[in-house]
Design a protein around this nucleic acid. Structure first.
Lengths: 350, 350
DNA sequence: TTTCAACACGCAAACGTTGTAGTTCATTTA
DNA sequence: TAAATGAACTACAACGTTTGCGTGTTGAAA
């Protein structure tokens, strides 16, 4: 086990000073061509690579991004991560992931752990519990310390920082319009409780679009799922709620606020004897593996997670690298566009 | 924007030396109770937290694990990550993820970037390209430098290090046996090219089990998918191959080496008019979201990714923390158990 | 009064870098 | 020939910590 060479070791070996070695490797003109050659040869031979930690300490920047998400076994979030990683790597940054598990405390913990010098900035999507508690002190403190934050997907109007989102109300508008155009008359929405901003916004888009088409939205057709974070039998619970809902209402289309809800609703509907899309059309928000491979393949709106990740990383790194850190005022919110991916749970519009 | 307090700042403010502050905070008995009180109060007030980078430099350990995987939009790998994160956090470690994208070069790059002081050890699942090239110099060099590696899932016999795996041959044996017990006579396997060790091993298990049951394995019933890493229309390509295969053979059961293959095979079979499981039984390796929500829900063998992640992290941290780093000899390989999760693509055995 | 612990603290080095400010020596210039 | 120039290098400080050791002040024992 040969240990990592340092400047000091090379210096001793070559009988020059540490600074000479450092300068030689950085091709300073203070050093003679001769010496440079020697140093470079030696460095290559022993595979010298500067120690990142030492550099971080010296430069007061780590070239590392902290990404904090509620869940990692999750198609959308991983897509975003892959967008972040890709872009960040291109610009020479690494990525540390922290998982909040939808828990406020773990989110705070992660933020604090990483804020102590380990990273230069954060990309975060908030935990449900945080949204519910409305306790944002950790975010504010972090920003106060001069560590920039970029929020994505689950964002907060109350906090001023860069953000990357999808236009939730417009997008669900699109989806609902599609349903209407395909002949649906009684469109239900399956959504989350209102404290999840994206759920609320999507519900809003649903209602607005109905109104725009001369349909009066009825609370009756809104199913708000209370998913209690980690209920043991989440799936069964979900299916029950949907079953009850579909059975008792007179509906011919469902707009679901995420993939799981859409799939589960379809399952319940199928058990109840509905044919899809003939008797019941379905559109889901968020395009994941499930949708593509569902039976029948689910029409969804795609959030382009990879693009969101890329945008978030770009926003963050740009901010980190602009020297004049005085103009912290004008934060940007980038809205990434969405698309409806038509598969087989909707009727063709004629 | 108040900047992060350092020992130096506290020291100046309190008009004592830096060492006094440090010692006070670490509750050294060299410091008077009085001074300690003062320092602690001040530190709390200004929310002092020691700088991780400085600590890393001083202690020559970062308390950070590097995890390198081929892909992150992937149920199994994310499950493993969540197992790693959970356990690592408990023991005070952070996790940096690197994505190889199944590419050898990116794997090497990631390893090198992180090996320069950023992390204390690696947990890695090899890229397909690495497996194919059989070029392992980066792994060997890393270990040589004293940075421990734990491999999981896609591992290498040639490299001695800690490993976490599933007993692939035994497990697929179990699956095939289940198929036989449920009355299948002509069991096909859909697997990868042999350079992917897990594919090869699972094929082996398949063959052995057939033999054990007095059935002669036929090359004819083995479909080896050449998935060319990132073919554009991977899915269509896959479905075609499967369609051809199923159409031309006389089979009543399929054992697929991963979830995607299983799902796609089912899709193809359904189009060909097979009823599942009556005409064709299917078992997949790896239990993910797809399997659970497939139609019909897919019987699979579960790899318990979370447990694998936990084991890998434990192996790594234990090695990092045992001081006498002399006994590098006896590396451990932990085999995590698998289970067959029966859903609706197999017949009950009577 | 002298001596000596005990106490409470400061100094300096170290981790691996880099950049600024010297230092040395030989060569050119007036 | 003395002074100025410049090339090629070294020393030092700093980034934020921790820690072994040194040191000045006490109060008490001799």
């Amino acid at each position: 086990m040969k240990q990592k060479p340092t400047l000091k070791i090379i210096a001793k070996e070559l009988d020059v000073s540490v600074s000479t070695v450092s300068k030689a490797l950085r091709d300073s003109k203070e050093i003679s061509e001769d010496t440079k050659q020697k140093v470079r040869a030696f460095a290559k031979l022993y595979n010298y690579k500067p120690n990142n930690i030492a550099l971080s300490l010296k430069n007061r920047k780590t070239k590392t991004l902290g990404v904090i998400i509620p869940e990692i076994v999750h198609h959308f979030f991983t897509t975003v991560i892959s967008g972040i990683e890709n872009y960040a790597n291109q610009r020479g940054y690494n990525v540390i992931v922290g998982l909040s598990d939808e828990s406020f405390d773990r989110e705070v913990l992660n933020l604090e752990m990483l804020a102590n010098g380990s990273i230069d900035g954060f990309i975060i999507s908030l935990a449900k519990e945080t949204l519910q508690k409305k306790d944002y002190h950790h975010l504010i403190e972090t920003i106060d310390q001069g560590i920039p934050i970029v929020m994505f997907d689950r964002v907060l109007d109350e906090i001023s920082c860069d953000k990357v989102v999808v236009d939730d109300v417009e997008t669900s508008g699109k989806a609902v319009q599609k349903l209407i155009d395909s002949g649906a008359k009684n469109i239900a929405i399956i959504t989350t409780e209102d404290y999840v901003s994206v759920g609320r916004l999507r519900t809003e888009g649903y209602q607005q679009t109905l109104v725009k088409n001369g349909i009066t939205p009825s609370e009756n057709l809104i199913l708000r799922i209370d998913d209690q974070f980690n209920s043991d039998d989440l799936l069964g619970h979900l299916e029950n709620q949907m079953d009850q809902f579909i059975k008792t209402k007179q509906i011919d289309a469902i707009f679901a606020v995420n993939e799981l809800y859409a799939i589960t609703a379809m399952k319940a509907a199928r058990h109840l004897g509905f044919r899809i899309p003939e008797d019941l059309q379905v559109i889901g928000f968020t395009d994941g593996v499930l949708s593509k491979h569902a039976y029948p393949p689910l029409t969804t709106v795609s959030q382009h997670g990879k693009e969101m990740g890329k945008q978030a990383a770009e926003l963050l790194i740009d901010r980190l690298e602009k020297e004049t850190d005085q103009q912290d005022d004008h934060y940007r919110t980038v809205i990434v566009k969405t698309d409806i991916i038509e598969r087989e749970t909707t009727q063709a519009v004629d």
